[in-house]
């Protein structure tokens, strides 16, 4: 077991950040493109209905991916990150939070970046779920009602920005103090 290329913690970090978070980010970008380019002249025609159906599936996948990202992040990745090292331990490489907090130049990665990562992704998941509900259950409203479409697009755009920033923070933290 000692010669495994990646530890379980490391694999879960990749699932959290790349598979789920990265997948959600790609999905949000595609959904935003679809929302911005959707034309509503004839929302009853087969092509428009097919596009609305695909958008519904896509936004649902985004919401599921984001919920899995925050759940894995909070309940799988976060506990080993914040584990307290035994008193007197000098090698903190297995204790990412303690390692980050031990250096004045890296403390911000916990005090700012990780504090944001603890909460903001949950906001993104709620916004994405609202958008997914509208796209899957009320595709016609999305096509015909400019206000509903604009608000859905705005919330997904906010989602995109939030997920981008927290992903970047995750990369910074994992670069300085990886979960190995």
């Amino acid at each position: 077991m000692d010669n495994l290329l990646f530890s379980a913690d490391s694999i879960w970090t990749m699932i959290h950040g790349i598979v789920l978070g990265g997948g959600a980010l790609l999905g949000i970008a595609a959904a935003l493109f679809s929302l911005v380019t959707v034309r509503v002249a004839d929302s009853a025609n087969a092509s428009a209905q097919r596009q609305a159906r695909y958008l519904g599936w896509l936004t649902m996948l985004v919401a599921v991916a984001l919920w899995l990202t925050v759940i894995v992040g909070t309940y799988v990745n976060f506990p080993p990150y914040r584990a307290t090292p035994p008193e007197g331990l000098t090698d903190l490489s297995q204790y990412p939070k303690a390692l980050i907090m031990s250096g004045p130049g890296t403390a911000w990665l916990h005090q700012f970046a990780m504090e944001i990562k603890e909460h903001v992704p949950w906001i993104a998941a709620m916004l994405a779920t609202g958008a997914a509900f509208v796209a899957t259950r009320h595709g016609q409203s999305l096509a015909r009602d400019a206000s509903v479409r604009r608000l859905t697009t705005t919330l997904l755009a906010i989602c995109f920005v939030l997920v981008s920033f927290v992903s970047l923070f995750g990369v910074f933290i994992n670069k300085v103090a990886p979960l190995d």
């Binding site: 779920t129 509900f133 016609q140 409203s141 015909r144």
Partner: peptide
Amino acid sequence: DAVTNGEPLAALLAA
């Protein structure tokens, strides 16, 4: 959906 918008707006405001 052509005449009502309450349910989608409820979902978005709730978010």
